[in-house]
């Protein structure tokens, strides 16, 4: 592949590709990521859809917050058991609302360490204008926010509330 055919304008995600230079030699080229540059909006809009659909199911009480984060972070029960050091049969229980309700805080902490979130996040779904940062083009607007309000409401999931952070833009 010629260098010119690989150049993508994407300063926020740079990669190194190997390509044919003008003199016929092959060597490294630092350029924008093809995926990020040409498809990222579509890909992350899709990932955003997946997360929103998961969050809706979480709010409806279809599964526990552990299940939500497991899927959102691309893990499965085997992998989660390995990462938390919790037996797989117990992980499977924790994926259900019933099992989640019986968990100790110390066990929740082990999950939160793996998911890299505060324990408190298991108990709320937070909706913010920044959710739209899945759409890279929208990122600039987030910085322009000024006043805002916060509201909390119950969901059908007995463990989870929905926190809405609404910011108005200029």
């Amino acid at each position: 592949m010629k260098e010119k055919d690989l150049i993508v304008d994407c300063p926020y995600h740079q990669v190194v590709l190997y390509a044919e230079k003008d003199d016929g030699t092959y060597g490294p080229l630092q350029t924008g990521s093809y995926m990020a540059g040409t498809n990222i909006s579509e890909h992350f809009r899709m990932a955003g859809n997946l997360n929103r659909s998961l969050a809706d199911q979480l709010k409806s009480g279809a599964f526990s917050p552990i299940y939500f984060y497991m899927i959102a972070e691309g893990l499965n029960a085997d992998e989660l058991a390995g990462r938390t050091g919790i037996a797989k049969f117990r992980v499977n229980k924790h994926l259900t609302l019933k099992g989640f309700g019986k968990m100790k805080i110390s066990t929740l902490k082990r999950y939160s360490d793996v998911f890299n979130i505060p324990v408190a996040n298991f108990f709320q779904v937070i909706s913010t204008i920044q959710d739209r940062n899945w759409d890279i083009g929208y990122q600039g607007d987030v910085d322009d926010t000024k006043v805002g309000s916060i509201s909390q409401k119950k969901t059908k999931n007995p463990f989870v509330i929905e926190t809405e952070v609404i910011k108005s833009t200029r």
Binding site: M1, V15, L17, Y18, A19, P28, S33, Y34, M35, A36
Partner: peptide, 9 residues
Amino acid sequence: LEDQGTGGG
């Protein structure tokens, strides 16, 4: 194939 540290292709 392209983005995850392969150098392309």
